[in-house]
Design a protein around this nucleic acid. Structure first.
Length: 585
RNA sequence: GGUGCGGUAGUUCAGCCUGGUUAGAAUGCCGGCCUGUCACGCCGGAGGUCGCGGGUUCGAUCCCCGUCCGCACCGCCA
């Protein structure tokens, strides 16, 4: 028997018990006459003590122990004379009488501690060592609990988890597919699913009216801190539901997770914004409403006073930064630089300072008197001491730039606090998005999303105006979920494919199976998928989803630990009928 | 595809702007001392292809160009 207890469970009540522990040497402190060893496992740390007087041989062995040696120690649980209130097992220690080295360890390349000295690169290469560290261990534990509670919630609501295939078929819409060659079908390829979208709809047709799956999805696109080529979704679909039913069910899931995992309860119904409202008020379709400052349209009050920049622009708008009227020239210059960055794209920044002495000063004093500027302040209910930041230009880009500026001010004013969670729904997304490069519409969500019934007639006249029964779930400016009511009529689905520029043959070849299924009594249905990694990283307070994934890939989609992707042998290629020609740069 | 930042002891960084002596610090590692530590303490020691290639220069860790690697962001990601 390797152990009678774990390294996290012994307490003062266990005093005088003979116990055996196994684990890793976290650190040892050699005081000459005696040696302390911190023994670590998944459950915690327990101090072992070796005393010169009790056993010189044992203590000599203990001095040899290096960091991360795997050892087994038996001894008597004893109350410490010097207790350590900082650790759960800090009242006791083990007076060791038998020590076995189960495996030695070379010195690890970085310290296995909460505050490690290791950089990202090294930690990735030695991920199995990084995972020994407390913060990552806690993240994986959190992830497990969240998966468990998710299944628990859906189980009590009659959902069943059904696995869908991973080797499927490439489709043209959406992200690039990862493909897998088929040996038994030379020259043909499977694709890995970007999501189980069509399968869950087919499950609805099959009558499994409440489906859930925590499932891996794959997208071959460039990576970010919150994007991995393979990631997990909480994928859901329901039949005989309208949008309201879905919002309630999945708001329930989020509430359940916050309550059981974080002990947070949201008393009121979560806020809902339409896509247009989100854009107008926050300049963003995934607003971080921890930052309260909203955008207001100043076009009407600002125009016509002879200031060419504003007069010639279709839109002028601003945000009000509370208590920032005393911002220095330097701070305002920094903000100007911020909005002029290519990613933000504004030409410049105007400001109005509503001084603590109620005096009004602005960068446009030449064109606007105090009375004019008071009108600007009005929609914000600005108070003395506030600072108005104003951008002008084309409507949508200016709103988006104001949205970025809002977040920047939120950061500067420390309004985006980690422990605070502000979830909301964003509703009524546009059904279609115009792509100026290929001159056609694309589905904003996916091609199975149903238009709002009252907007269907617009499909022929003004497709860009059609709103969808589509919704996103947003927490703290992070899009954590998205879904829609689906089309369940073959006719409407055909119409949708037409609008997207599919020929009948394209539609039939790629999605014929779905449209055929719709002929056999497809129930009204809809669903949603939550980005599980993002949800866990939010709960964990981590910036990057890599910190909640056991074995993530790096910026360039490589696994630096196993060194993948990698070439395959000529034999493998031949078997697959594949000839490789690496494109020259 | 693009932009920015970074690459110097095992590790995390300083030095580089303003080129020139033996390239430093902390931590880790090794050795010694130490009987109540828990980031133990004290003393000593070892440890460097300054990512790689080219250029400028009498001379390059330092300046320039290229390249590779890492991170963040833009494009992209229904």
């Amino acid at each position: 028997m390797y152990r009678t207890h774990t390294c996290g469970e012994l307490r003062i009540q266990d005093t005088a018990k003979q116990v055996t522990l196994s684990g890793w040497v976290q650190r040892s402190r050699d005081l000459g006459g005696m040696t302390f060893v911190d023994l670590r496992d998944r459950y915690g740390i327990t101090q072992l003590v070796f005393n010169m007087e009790a056993s010189a041989d044992l203590r000599r062995e203990a001095r040899r122990l290096g960091r991360e040696f795997v050892i087994q120690a038996s001894g008597i649980v004893a109350e410490r004379s010097n207790k350590n209130p900082k650790m759960p097992t800090g009242d006791i220690e083990i007076i060791v009488n038998t020590l076995t080295v189960l495996n030695e360890s070379v010195t690890p390349p970085f310290t296995i501690e909460a505050e490690t000295d290791g950089g990202d690169e090294l930690r990735m290469k030695y991920r199995y060592l990084d995972l020994r560290r407390e913060p990552l261990k806690n993240n994986l534990l959190l992830r497990h609990r969240m998966a468990f509670e998710t299944r628990n919630y859906f189980n009590t609501h009659q959902f069943i988890e059904i696995e869908t295939p991973v080797l499927i078929k490439s489709t043209p819409e959406g992200a690039r597919d990862f493909v897998v060659p088929s040996r038994v079908n030379p020259g043909q390829f499977y694709a890995l699913p970007q999501s189980p979208q069509t399968f869950k709809q087919l499950l609805m047709v099959a009558g499994y009216d409440r489906y859930v799956q925590i499932v891996k999805c794959f997208r071959d696109e460039d990576l970010r801190a919150d994007r991995q080529p393979e990631f997990s979704q909480i994928d859901c679909e329901m039949s005989f539901v309208q949008q309201e039913d879905i919002l309630n069910m999945f708001e329930g899931m989020v509430r359940h997770l916050f309550k059981t995992i974080k002990g947070i309860e949201f008393s009121e119904l979560l806020p809902r914004l339409t896509y247009n409202q989100a854009l107008e008020q926050y300049g963003n379709d995934k607003p971080d409403i921890r930052v309260e400052m909203k955008i207001h349209d100043l076009t009407a009050v600002a125009k016509g006073k002879g200031f060419g920049v504003i007069d010639s622009a279709p839109f002028t708008g601003g945000i009000c930064a509370k208590g920032c009227s005393e911002y220095s020239r330097k701070q305002l210059d920094e903000l100007t630089e911020f909005v002029k960055k290519p990613q933000i794209g504004a030409k410049g920044l105007l400001y109005v300072k509503y001084g603590t002495d109620s005096g009004i000063k602005s960068s446009v004093d030449k064109f606007y008197g105090a009375e004019d500027l008071k009108q600007w302040l009005e929609p914000f209910h600005a108070e003395a001491g506030d600072l108005l930041l104003v951008l002008t230009g084309e409507r949508i880009p200016t709103l988006k730039a104001l949205g970025e500026l809002r977040l920047e001010m939120g950061n500067r004013l420390n309004l985006r606090r980690k422990g605070e969670f502000k979830p909301l729904w964003v509703l009524d997304f546009p059904l279609l998005e115009w792509d100026n490069e290929v001159k056609r519409f694309f589905a904003m969500h996916h091609p199975f999303t149903s238009p709002k019934p009252e907007d269907i007639s617009l499909l022929d006249t003004d497709p860009g105006k059609v709103r969808a029964n589509a919704y996103d779930f947003v927490i703290n400016g992070v899009e954590v979920g998205g879904g829609s009511i689906r089309i369940h009529s073959e006719t409407l689905q055909k119409k949708m494919f037409q609008t997207l520029g599919f020929t009948d043959e394209d539609a039939e070849r790629q999605f014929g199976f779905l449209m055929q299924a719709f002929r056999y009594g497809a129930p009204p249905h809809g669903g949603i998928a939550f980005g599980f990694d993002r949800l866990v990283s939010l709960f964990a307070g981590e910036e990057s989803i890599r910190d909640v994934i056991a074995f993530p890939k790096n910026n360039a989609a490589r696994d630096v630990m196993i060194d993948s992707p990698a070439e395959i042998s000529a034999e493998q290629l031949q078997e697959l009928s594949i000839k490789v020609e690496v494109r020259k740069v």
